[in-house]
Amino acid sequence: MGVNYQTVLWNKNKKVYDKWIGIGILVYLICFIGITVATNPATSIETLIIRAFGTLAIALLHIVLVIGPLARLNTNFLPLLYNRRHLGVSMFLAALVHGGFSIFQFHSLGNVNPIYALVTSNMDYDSLTHFPFQVLGFFALIILFLMASTSHDFWLKNLSPKTWKRLHMLVYFAYALIIMHVFLGAFQQQPSFASIGILIFGFIIIASLHLIAAFKETRIDATVTQDTEDGWEYVCDVNDIPEDRAKIFIVEKERVAVFKYNNQLSAISNVCKHQGGPLGEGKIVDGCVTCPWHGYQYLPHNGQSPPPFTEKVATYELRIQNKKVYILPTPLPEGTEVTPILI
């Protein structure tokens, strides 16, 4: 949404959030190394680093993956969603340390290129018990690299939000690769039922939260408008919409958010231009509809981001009769001004 690009868009909240990420990572590493050294003093420093950062990356990946559905289910988690980008990059850096040290320790001491050695040193690709699990981790690392390296608004704008979103949805493929990487690795080396149990628990949590969030989405999609005689469709009673908030409805298969503010109503598309965030789950801040995901703003009466920003969403015409709100289902071109209706 910026008028020029910054390396990192810092603000006070992000700094606090990043400080907590740093403290969390440090505490985890100290605890992991302390417990490992106390219980298994023979562990080499390289193995310690590989395992500490590997488990750290998996823990962070789980947190990254649950933030989305948690924010859909409870708005208290929205600040985490707003700041998720830095957590994702931290997760990649932890995975990079894990992968880098692993490749260095196991594949870089011969006279063959380490990447070539990684893929070809164990050719048991048709065996489950001897499968070269490191290769799965390597491909997951490549996906995480592509995601972390495109975690900047430049990429979102120039790859297009749709392509960018598709690229970042690969995190689920990376997660599957990592699960297989850990399971096959654990079975081939020192089977630890505790770590396998934690991983299964994590998978159940992630899958359950996504399913519950998807169920909630289907309930929103079930909130459709009702036809009336002259092309207008009944939306809801005006009192059903909270002040400075919206109700979301399906109009002509599109999600539309009807906002109530300053004793008036306006309707705009529910889909934020930034990352497709649900505008109708945001609120009016400083006179603007504010996306709950990343704070992108739109004026409710014309769907335009306040100058100098240029994002626009479609607007809709509303009317009110006996406290009942009606909408014309055809969207107006993005950024079209519509006079708000007085309640």
């Binding site: 690299f145 592509l146 972390a148 390296s149 495109t150 900047h152 430049f154 990429w155």
Partner: peptide, 8 residues
């Protein structure tokens, strides 16, 4: 932006 350019 360079790492992203290397990847894409």
């Amino acid at each position: 932006l360079v790492p992203g350019a290397i990847g894409l």
